Amino acid sequence: MQKIILGKTGIQVTKNSFGALPIQRISKKDAVYLLQKAFYNGINYFDTARAYSDSEEKLGAAFSYIRGKLIISTKTAAQTGEELKKDLEESLRMLQTDYIDIYQFHNPAFCPKPGDGTGLYEAAEEAKREGKIRHIGITNHRIAVAKEAIASGLYETMQFPFSYLAADADLEIVEMCREVNMGFIAMKALAGGLIHNSACAYAFMDQPQFSHVVPIWGVQRESELDEFLSYQVCPPSLNDELKAEIEKDKKELAGDFCRGCGYCMPCPAGIEINNCARMSLMLRRAPQEGWLSQEWQAKMKKIEECKNCGHCKSKCPYGLNTPKLLKKNYEDYKTFL
């Protein structure tokens, strides 16, 4: 299997890596089976977070007995040094380990630095000295914060959304990381479910200019895992057919669209923003029946209760006018009923 050195960490990880956010939606038994199948078929890097409900617990159940043979990264959304210490201890307990390979600040609205008054970076450094974490990383959805983190020299890895739908500004982040030998971990390589052909996504990531990029594929079903495992044996090449599909997707998804990251949540009116705000795309890119169910009709109708409070708009890392996007999607949705 193709392996990548993750920047200055010196860690060697599989180009095909496992994003463990989706396993919080399946049973512990099924999650352990998927995780172990991934490992025994060559995948050695698994990414989770304290915020992913029981994802860490499932990784711990799957890997406690072979901990030294794989790489685990997790994340903290702590706002203070004391909160970070509590999060870290809970992550270590759930993962059934005494160290974490890469400990990441989880999408902070600012770039944590020594002396910024939060104590976050100092707490991470202390944990590193104690051997509880081995490398300090950061994840983000904001271009400005990502650039500041890269320029700071404080972080060994950057986890950032990246797929073939990436804008020029996103590509700049990827290149900046390469120039300073900072590990680049690509989240949302399938654009939050909007990209349906995983062969296209894989072939795009496999280009020489992205040889330093490690995509973490979110896996929930065995069929999804099998797809990515098959690419290890027979990697898809970026032929004319796949290039045409990529160009078609780029045209269809150009402009402002919701990535489904969920950082706008929760909504004071109870609207499921991360799905409702991209309903028009989902209706056109997936079987419609599921999205037109009574359950989804009720969820979309909640948009009528939008308070226009601006809460979601202020928290969107992509600067979207979310209330406007919700209403536009709702009007379009009604034309399908």
Rank of each mutant, 00 (worst) to 15 (best):
residue 230 S to R: 10
residue 52 Y to M: 09
residue 12 Q to H: 10
residue 28 K to R: 13
residue 141 H to I: 06
residue 300 M to A: 07
residue 80 T to R: 03
residue 314 S to V: 06
residue 66 I to C: 13
residue 64 S to T: 09
residue 251 K to H: 12
residue 278 R to V: 03
residue 321 N to V: 01
residue 120 L to N: 03
residue 274 N to K: 12
residue 129 R to T: 09
residue 114 P to R: 06
residue 230 S to Y: 01
residue 84 L to Q: 04
residue 272 E to N: 13
residue 267 C to N: 05
residue 229 L to W: 08
residue 93 R to T: 14
residue 98 D to Y: 04
residue 315 K to A: 15
residue 221 R to W: 08
residue 10 G to Q: 08
residue 62 A to Q: 06
residue 115 G to F: 11
residue 230 S to L: 06
residue 289 E to D: 15
residue 206 D to Y: 13
residue 48 T to C: 12
residue 266 P to A: 04
residue 64 S to K: 15
residue 245 E to T: 03
residue 201 A to Y: 00
residue 326 L to P: 04
residue 2 Q to S: 12
residue 254 A to K: 11
residue 11 I to N: 00
residue 202 Y to P: 10
residue 230 S to H: 04
residue 135 H to S: 10
residue 273 I to D: 02
residue 328 K to V: 06
residue 58 K to A: 12
residue 148 E to K: 14
residue 225 L to V: 08
residue 297 Q to L: 09
residue 110 F to D: 12
residue 118 T to F: 09
residue 91 S to I: 09
residue 224 E to R: 06
residue 277 A to E: 04
residue 214 V to T: 13
residue 142 R to A: 05
residue 149 A to Y: 03
residue 314 S to H: 08
residue 113 K to Y: 00
residue 231 Y to V: 00
residue 204 F to R: 01
residue 336 F to A: 02
residue 34 L to C: 06
residue 118 T to G: 08
residue 271 I to W: 07
residue 277 A to R: 01
residue 46 F to M: 08
residue 276 C to T: 13
residue 270 G to Y: 01
residue 183 G to L: 05
residue 2 Q to D: 12
residue 225 L to M: 11
residue 116 D to A: 04
residue 7 G to H: 10
residue 101 D to R: 03
residue 299 K to Y: 05
residue 176 M to I: 03
residue 156 E to N: 05
residue 260 G to F: 11
residue 314 S to T: 11
residue 265 M to C: 01
residue 232 Q to N: 15
residue 76 T to D: 04
residue 108 P to G: 13
residue 54 D to Y: 02
residue 321 N to E: 15
residue 133 I to P: 09
residue 191 A to D: 10
residue 117 G to Q: 08
residue 278 R to A: 01
residue 208 P to D: 04
residue 165 L to E: 10
residue 92 L to I: 09
residue 89 E to T: 10
residue 282 M to Q: 14
residue 57 E to C: 01
residue 179 E to T: 13
residue 277 A to H: 04
residue 184 F to A: 00
residue 197 N to I: 01
residue 63 F to M: 06
residue 134 R to S: 10
residue 82 E to S: 11
residue 200 C to Y: 00
residue 68 G to P: 00
residue 128 K to E: 05
residue 143 I to Y: 14
residue 189 A to T: 15
residue 73 S to K: 02
residue 83 E to W: 03
residue 20 A to R: 00
residue 63 F to C: 08
residue 149 A to K: 03
residue 47 D to R: 02
residue 26 I to F: 05
residue 135 H to W: 10
residue 79 Q to S: 14
residue 4 I to N: 05
residue 315 K to W: 09
residue 203 A to M: 07
residue 297 Q to W: 05
residue 38 A to V: 10
residue 161 P to M: 10
residue 125 E to A: 13
residue 22 P to D: 02
residue 267 C to S: 05
residue 96 Q to E: 13
residue 276 C to W: 07
residue 275 N to Y: 14
residue 115 G to C: 11
residue 275 N to K: 11
residue 130 E to R: 15
residue 164 Y to C: 11
residue 167 A to M: 12
residue 168 D to Y: 01
residue 96 Q to F: 00
residue 211 S to M: 00
residue 265 M to R: 02
residue 108 P to K: 10
residue 216 I to A: 04
residue 312 C to M: 05
